[in-house]
């Protein structure tokens, strides 16, 4: 799978997961890497960009094990962006599935 495609999908996965609940980096990566092969470190540049663009905010929360964890929370703008990406995703996969099923000819 080419990198551009994977990067776009990773963006979508992160937003989808954060929409379900606030999560810290490690937790988020474990949820994704259980299903999709990825370079785990790449999630942080993505999260930092989301925070700079206002799609996510962060807060620290104490944990019983080790240092406080930085949690990421989806903002309203982040949710709006997620909806846009989801719509693109559905349209794209629908089109591809249609072609795979041979209905395009």
């Amino acid at each position: 799978m080419n990198v551009q495609f994977k990067k776009g999908v990773l963006e979508l996965c992160v937003l989808v997961l954060l929409d379900k609940k606030d999560q810290y980096g490690y937790e988020l990566v474990q949820h994704i890497s259980r299903h999709i092969e990825l370079s785990e470190g790449a999630v942080y540049p993505l999260l930092r960009r989301f925070t700079k663009e206002g799609y996510t905010t962060t807060y620290l929360q104490e944990s019983s094990e080790g240092p406080p964890r930085k949690y990421y929370k989806l903002t309203k703008e982040g949710n709006k962006y997620l909806q846009e990406l989801l719509e693109e995703w559905w349209m794209f996969t629908e089109g591809v599935n249609y072609l795979i099923d041979g209905k395009g000819i």
Binding site: N2, V3, Q4, K7, G8, L38, S39, G41, A42, P45
Partner: peptide
């Protein structure tokens, strides 16, 4: 930055 390789391991 969004789309082009950087940090991704599997090309």
């Amino acid at each position: 930055v969004r789309m082009v390789k950087g940090g991704m391991k599997y090309a």
